[in-house]
Design a protein around this nucleic acid. Structure first.
Length: 836
DNA sequence: GCGGACTGCTTACCT
DNA sequence: ACAGGTAAGCAGTCCGCG
């Protein structure tokens, strides 16, 4: 790895008027800047010929940013033909498409004119963020990557066609290039505020920065403090080994922190875009520092209120955005921090430590207290990238390589941007014209199936009605990555769907009137195939292989996770109207084929005499299938259907309540698996969850029908007990609280006012304002509007009767699975006699 | 004016 | 700013009722 540099980011330097690459040099842990040296310029494409531009659109030529015109040939994937287009080249990105009179707005039709310049530069140069480069004669050259022999063999086996194999090898290199542990520093600031609980406005930056904490991967543990007489005694070092530096002058302190920022390739913050970096920039300006002295620049993105703090020469990684990415929460971190998204909750979930709890305002803290508090935040921010062998940073680098996005863009955008960029990169690589959404819409038509849910665009998956009851020895088989597999096998892509060739029209997708191209391989189909194959055939098995050592298994696991993020969203984006390659009929075909696969398999199972108890989208629950027949079914699926069907789980028993997406099972390993039962839902009161947990524990020990009878008795006991406790007010308010999330701000509920919103509005009268995303804790009370937020309720106001139906449904779901009526266990009469 | 039947809204979940 | 399908509880409305 001599002299190799890792590409972290590509940006447009308005100072130099050209693209600049930011590369990481692991030798000294610093940033190397590289400026474009080929005179690459921003441009757009149009179908207007140069002659007509000159004659009819002279404003283009006269535009202050106009450079020149070129005629280029492009492949138009929607019409399957090569076309000539005019490339209008400008001197700067703004002239192409920002502000009044941009060239984009002069011409009637343009293509590729909304692509950010720095991304356009990546597509044209083929630079891959996250990869290693060498500086050769002033140019960046991709460093070669050695693929381990076991992987190379697998790739060779999977891909026979030489051209495809070459592409596969390229992907393998992306995934296998070494990942360095990048030197980084986390920053957190505290600001003086005269009013308690009021967050200072960074745009005004009216108050002093009183503390700046720094925690770095190379051992910096420091807090810079502004001298304030009221903050008590000056300590130079905290017992935890944190150095404290005192400054009389805020301006000097900021200059010092900027010097430190300048030295690091990666600057980590938690919400630094909106607060810390934003505040520092405005404050530094207010204190008279010049732009040259401030390594931060504030970029207002298109969206209102969305601010981005750029740092030079390093890269600013705001972890708040990354950890709020839905895909990361669901796939990579298994919903370990689903509800709230503060530094405290995320750190608590992933690191096991939270923020320091304050009882006073930061302004009232002593130097030591303030430093400790502030440092903890910086430390947590740093540790979020250090835990599990820097898994978060490793994941980011892999995601950069797959998406081709610079690190700063990657951490701030969601999966649809990642997939978009990956596909755009591929289009440009093959000299394909990137289609405009309107053209896809016009040429591909609309969806033809009817969704079950009102307001949805097309029919989705099938859920088989479960047979209520308890079943022993249940085997769950499922298709490995059903939708991506379908997309691969049936060549689904926006351009292959309803393609312009007459001979393809008969290649219908079952259950739809759509057809798929037989001439060409679809671009999205091929790309998703690679990601799918690499995950399913290579990295997932290897990550579990006992023959490999722990370090290898772990690194394969990260690769597997990174691929999963893309694969799992690969179908959904085509049904998402904001996705620039939005193509709902393509998504419709994918689900149609998913239904086709599951129904065919269901039929085959029947033929083989296997009882199917339940199924959802891509899975079937088989009741005690004989090994021969099971094997035959799996083989049939692979050979005839062409999709891998595998055994996913084996249950000792499963209890189906008769409702869809609602069952409880215990695996042969003794793991309790609960799906969709209310007792598990986040919002139900703690005391009900606890009752449910008690029953679940007994359930997990069940191994015979006799045991089930015992469970019935226990449910009776637990329920009776709970009624008594409820009546005697033995539960605390907190145990009785429902915890429901606001999906919008309270005032935005127009059509109806749900209970949690009523509670939130009551709270508002006491000056506690809840917003979208916050969780409202409320209890049910007698009189008034029937609910009160826990903060305002008293235990004697509780309306016990309103809790009974909730206890009932919780147990009913379990009891109905056992074929027992709830009233049989605890009849209504019992309740009336006992309770009221 | 009141209650049951119904629809619609909202949330949390499943794949 | 990935998708659709399902369960549950409550809000709001309609309708019939001398």
């Amino acid at each position: 790895m001599d002299n190799e540099l890792l590409l972290l980011s590509v940006e447009y330097s308005s100072e130099y008027g050209k693209a600049v690459a930011k590369l990481y040099d692991p030798k000294n842990g610093s940033i190397v800047l590289w400026y474009d040296n080929k005179g690459h310029r921003p441009y757009l494409l149009t179908d207007i010929t140069p002659e007509v531009i000159v004659s009819d659109y002279a404003q283009v030529i006269q535009h202050r940013g106009f450079d020149h015109l070129e005629l280029v040939e492009k492949y138009d994937p929607l019409r399957d033909r090569n076309i000539l287009m005019t490339k209008v080249i400008a001197t700067d990105p703004l002239s192409i498409g920002r502000g009044r009179n941009a060239i984009r707005d002069i011409l009637p039709r343009t293509w590729e004119s909304r692509i950010k310049y720095h991304l356009c530069y990546i597509y044209d140069t083929g630079l891959i963020p996250g990869m290693w480069y060498k500086l050769v004669n002033g140019n960046l050259r991709l460093a070669d990557v050695e693929i381990p022999s076991n992987i190379a063999k697998l790739v060779e086996k999977l891909y026979r066609d030489p051209k495809t194999r070459e592409r596969a090898v390229h992907w393998a290199k992306l995934l296998h290039a070494p990942i360095p542990d990048i030197r980084r520093i986390a920053i957190d600031i505290e600001v003086y505020t005269p009013i308690r609980d009021r967050i200072p406005n960074p745009r005004e930056a009216k108050y002093q920065v009183i503390a700046i904490a720094l925690a770095s991967s190379d051992g910096v543990r420091k807090v810079m403090l502004l001298r304030r007489p009221e903050a008590g005694e000056e300590v130079s070092r905290l017992s935890e080994g944190i150095d404290l530096e005192y400054y009389d002058d805020e301006r000097t302190m900021l200059k010092k922190v900027f010097e430190i920022i300048n030295e690091y390739p990666l600057i980590l913050t938690f919400n630094g875009d909106n607060f810390d970096m934003n505040y520092l920039w405005h404050r530094a300006r207010l204190l008279g520092l010049s732009d040259k002295e401030i390594p931060i620049s504030i970029v207002y993105t298109g969206q209102i209120g969305q601010v981005r703090a750029r740092i030079d020469p390093g890269v600013h990684v705001d972890l708040y955005h990354f950890f709020n990415n839905h895909a990361m929460q669901v796939y990579a971190f298994k919903s370990r921090y689903r509800e709230t998204k503060t530094l405290d909750t995320i750190a608590q979930a992933l690191l096991g430590i939270g923020k320091i709890k304050l009882t006073k305002n930061v302004t009232e803290l002593s130097y030591a207290e303030l430093a400790r508090y502030c440092y903890r935040d910086a430390e947590l921010t740093l540790k979020l990238t250090l835990f599990d062998n820097s898994i978060v940073l490793r994941l980011m680098i892999l995601l950069m390589r797959i998406s081709k996005l610079p690190l700063d863009d990657l951490v701030r955008t969601g999966i649809s941007q990642w997939i978009k960029n990956m596909l755009y990169f591929e289009h440009r690589k093959m000299n394909w014209l990137i289609p405009e959404p309107i053209d896809i819409k016009r040429l591909k038509g609309s969806t033809k199936t009817k969704a079950i849910i009102k307001g949805k665009k097309y029919l989705g998956a099938i859920v088989i009605d479960p047979l209520p009851g308890v079943f022993f020895n249940v085997m769950v088989v499922d298709f490995a990555s059903l939708y991506p597999s379908v997309i691969k096998k049936w060549n689904i892509s926006y351009e292959t769907l309803n393609c312009p060739h007459n001979e393809c029209r008969s290649n219908k997708i079952p259950g739809t009137p759509h057809w798929i191209c037989t001439r060409h391989r679809g671009i999205t189909s091929e790309l998703i195939s690679f990601l799918r194959d690499f995950r399913i055939e290579i990295y997932k098995p290897l990550s579990k292989s006992p023959e490999l050592d722990k370090v290898d298994r772990e690194s394969y696991e990260v690769i597997q996770q990174a691929l999963k993020v893309f694969i799992n969203a690969s179908y959904g984006v085509f049904g998402h109207e904001k996705f620039p390659l939005y193509c709902p009929p393509a998504a419709e075909c994918t689900t149609a084929l998913g239904r086709y696969a599951i129904t065919k398999t269901l039929r085959k199972a029947h033929e083989l005499g296997i009882d199917v108890l339940y199924g959802d989208t891509d899975s079937l629950f088989l009741w005690s299938p004989s090994p021969d027949r099971l094997d035959e079914l799996l083989k049939w699926s692979r050979e005839i259907l062409g999709i891998d069907l595998d055994v996913d789980k084996v249950y000792k028993f499963v209890a189906f309540s008769g409702r869809k997406k609602n069952y409880l099972g215990v695996t042969v390993e003794g793991i309790l698996d609960i799906k969709g039962l209310v007792g598990k839902k986040r919002h139900v009161p703690e005391f009900i969850k606890d009752l449910f947990l008690q029953v679940s524990n007994y359930m997990s020990k069940v191994s015979s029908l006799g045991d089930l009878m015992e469970v019935k008795r226990i449910i009776h006991e637990i329920a009776k007990d709970s009624y008594m406790k409820l009546k005697k007010r033995k539960y605390t308010l907190s145990e009785l609280a429902f915890r429901v999330a606001l999906t919008k701000d309270p005032e935005d509920y127009i059509k109806s006012t749900p209970q949690h919103v009523k509670a939130a509005k009551l709270l508002e009268r006491y000056g506690i304002k809840l917003r979208a995303g916050d969780i409202v804790s409320f209890v049910k009370v007698r009189g008034g509007i029937g609910v009160k937020p826990v903060q305002l309720a008293r235990i004697d106001e509780i309306d016990e009767e309103k809790y009974l139906p909730h206890i009932e449904t919780t147990f009913r779901q379990i009891l109905e699975a056992m074929g027992v009526d709830f009233n049989e266990i605890l009849g209504k009469r019992f309740l009336e006699s006992q309770l009221f």
